[in-house]
Write a protein that binds this DNA or RNA. Structure first.
Lengths: 250, 250
DNA sequence: CATCTTACCTTGGTCAGACCAGAATACATA
DNA sequence: TATGTATTCTGGTCTGACCAAGGTAAGATG
């Protein structure tokens, strides 16, 4: 009626549109014909070559971007990249967004990661790691009365431990999990004022962990760390029971 | 000069185009104003409302789809979903596509997860879990001479252990990591024929792990599991050194 | 009046062609 | 040769359109 209808529609193989393009690129990426550093051909050309329109191609590209396998650089091109761990962060963030009840569960994973990492740290940590740990330790002591700073210092120490483990995978996972826990339990540290004994616990525990790492004793390091988590958990439990906790949501 | 320039460009807040839309939706999703099950308003309306064109909105939606937070259903609408762990699989698949050298590193993470899980399993496992573990154990014995089946049985047992830990997060992570290791080390089990002593090791170790769980002894369970991994690692090392390993890639 | 048909509207899926702005590069000039 | 400018990419985005199938409500039927 109105006008044109010659063209359009299934040009060739596979799925339909986006699906096809995504699968195509995915395959290329996984197979290795496209490797990190490579630059894809211009969107217009690629779209034409794949028999889809540019918007569709862009959807696929964007999808890959989210997965961290490619990077679309404005006015430069699309570059293949080694997947960025931050993707996990995105995922976990969404996955555990409202389910605050799973925080404890995520914590189990964090404990798992850290306990393994601390073992590795005891074996692999370098002098530089020792220094970083020592600094983090000092920060914990300095900020013991400051909820915000203290929390940050605490996380820094634990991150330093994991980093000292020299396992890329553990580091990535730990970062993701920490992010979730941070977001969820922003004010967890606030109960610090409640138990004064907690201060010494915080300082002493971290110091013992540090000592264990320096002492190259994986077994002991893990035990101390586990204990550390257990005690922290206990404090939290007591706070939850003994007091009506004040909470603040933004 | 040429002509029109009234419209187009920065309609309101934030970033530019895609970035803005993605951020907007992300915030909505994280904040909870959009929760699983909800259906977004039609693309056209949403696009107009956000001040972007439909293709751009679709890029954002597609990105969220990859993250598993929404599902675009043809001719129905866009539905908010609870992120699916399979996303992790996607990510890891890409992340470790060609980097087979990081397998050992991923293994560290798997050990971390399992060691924590086995502790939880020792505490939380139900009778049903015991049964499943027992069955897996039986399978290991039965398939001890079958490389393929044996490998599967092995994985099943370990998965059963993690499941018995009752931690969703650990289960998800373990699945992802196992997937990678499976893909990478398809024929790892082939060196079974080399060391005959390995057979008894496989059977005995798993039985001891099982016993520890049934015995409700987290400490012991972890120790045995760790030992199990260490010995397996040792076998592998010996195989690598002592023999020119035959490898087969598909 | 209840049920079944059917036409219409909605909604995602896709396309084509256009314009912008800045990066890359070629080229002309000093 | 060095430098500065013009041209060409290239991604980023917009507009407006068409298609096909899901939903739905009006109309036909028993």
């Amino acid at each position: 009626m109105t006008a044109d209808l010659e063209i359009t529609r299934l040009r060739e193989s596979g799925g339909k549109g986006f699906e096809k393009v995504f699968a195509f690129l995915r395959e290329r990426l996984l197979a290795g014909s496209l490797r990190p550093g490579d630059r894809l051909i211009p969107e217009r050309d690629l779209a034409a070559q794949l028999g889809v329109s540019r918007p569709i191609l862009r959807e696929a590209l964007r999808a890959l971007t989210v997965l961290g396998v490619v990077e679309i650089r404005d006015r430069v091109g699309t570059i293949v990249r080694r997947p960025d761990p931050s993707v996990l962060n995105d995922f976990f963030t969404f996955a555990f967004a409202q389910q605050s009840d799973v925080v404890d569960d995520v914590m189990q994973a964090r404990i798992a990661i850290e306990c393994q990492a601390v073992r590795l740290a005891a074996e692999r940590a370098t002098v530089s790691d020792f220094e970083r740990l020592q600094q983090a330790l000092a920060r914990i002591v300095d900020t013991i009365d400051d909820p915000d700073g203290g929390s940050a210092a605490d996380f820094d120490f634990h991150r330093a431990v994991v980093n000292a483990g020299k396992s890329e995978t553990l580091i990535v996972l730990h970062n993701s999990l920490s992010g979730i826990l941070m977001r969820s339990h922003r004010g967890r540290r606030e109960l610090l004022q409640v138990f004064d004994s907690m201060k010494t616990y915080l300082i002493e525990d971290h110091r013992r962990i540090f000592d264990a790492i320096v002492g190259r004793d994986p077994e002991h390091a893990e035990r101390v760390l586990r204990e550390h988590f257990a005690i922290g958990d206990d404090f939290r439990r007591r706070a939850a029971i003994g007091e009506s906790d004040a909470r603040s949501a933004s």
